[in-house]
């Protein structure tokens, strides 16, 4: 597999607690890779290290053969952003409308003029079915609409890599699938590489090209979702059975029959 995002020997500790302990991960271009694992195991910390929000204690992160700090400077996206990050709680600005939230990275960090920004944002809002809510503030939007605004803001700069930190938390099943569909749809349209953290097992496997299981600070499984069933690791089997993965297997078996 050609590695677009390459992580080697990534370590991060907080006080005495070692959260990441030699993470090695290879993510292919334009793929969807999902990181699973128990709560508090360090999945979000890994994403934040990739996004440069946290400084790792050791290790390297390369994007297309360049260290991330270098790739950020050389980014081909409109706002010089190689990474976008969709936060678990959306992190929208309460005092800005949906339109302004989506436009923010272009207004502040791109060289596009006002007309170009408006055209780009309008187009994005149409895709996200948010045109009618463009002038509404986050406090006036439903949970699903806020997720879509956050997704729009993450994608508006056409980044190379989008990091999704539990993008479906707090959504009903219908909205969850809607968000997953949007990720797949936009990945196909814009060709970004997606790295997801999710607890929505087994639903998230439907859109994942690869799954990475993070446990005790290391990636202990990395492979295709269908390989999860045949994996012999008892700890992973235990995690998946607690995460309701058996339900998917039986559903899939039922469908195959």
């Amino acid at each position: 597999m050609d590695s677009f995002l390459k992580i080697r020997g990534l370590n991060k500790h907080f006080g005495d607690k070692r959260v990441l302990d030699g993470i090695d991960l290879d993510v292919a271009a334009a793929s969807v890779t999902t990181i699973i694992g128990k709560s508090g195991i360090g999945k979000s910390v890994l994403l934040k290290c990739i996004a440069n929000l946290l400084q790792p204690d050791a290790g390297t992160i390369e994007l297309d053969g360049q260290a991330i700090s270098q790739s950020r400077r050389n980014a081909q996206s409109d706002a010089g952003v190689s990474f976008s990050y969709m936060f678990q709680n959306n992190a929208l600005f309460d005092s800005l409308t949906a339109f302004e939230n989506v436009a923010l990275p272009l207004c502040e960090a791109s060289k596009l003029n006002k007309a170009e920004i408006e055209e780009r944002v309008d187009e994005m809002l149409v895709h996200l079915e948010l045109s009618d809510s463009a002038d509404r503030y986050p406090g006036e939007l439903s949970g699903g609409m806020k997720k879509r605004v956050a997704l729009g803001r993450a994608l508006i700069t056409k980044p190379q890599v989008v990091l999704f930190d539990e993008p479906t938390t707090g959504l009903d099943p219908e909205r969850k699938f809607s968000v997953f569909e949007m990720i797949v749809d936009y990945r196909e349209r814009f060709g970004f590489t997606a790295l997801l953290v999710s607890h929505d097992i087994p639903e998230v496997f439907e859109i994942s090209d690869r799954v990475a299981w993070l446990d005790e600070g290391r990636i202990k499984f990395f492979g295709k979702p269908e390989e999860l069933n045949t994996d012999a690791q008892s700890a992973l089997s235990g995690f998946l059975s607690k995460a309701n993965y058996g339900r998917k297997s039986s559903l899939m078996n039922g469908a195959n029959e």
Binding site: N52, A79, V81, A91, F93, P105, R153, T157
Partner: peptide
């Protein structure tokens, strides 16, 4: 706390 400041950093602002 709401990670809005982190969000600005990820947007290169």
């Amino acid at each position: 706390n709401d990670e809005q400041i982190d969000a600005l950093q990820t947007m290169s602002i």
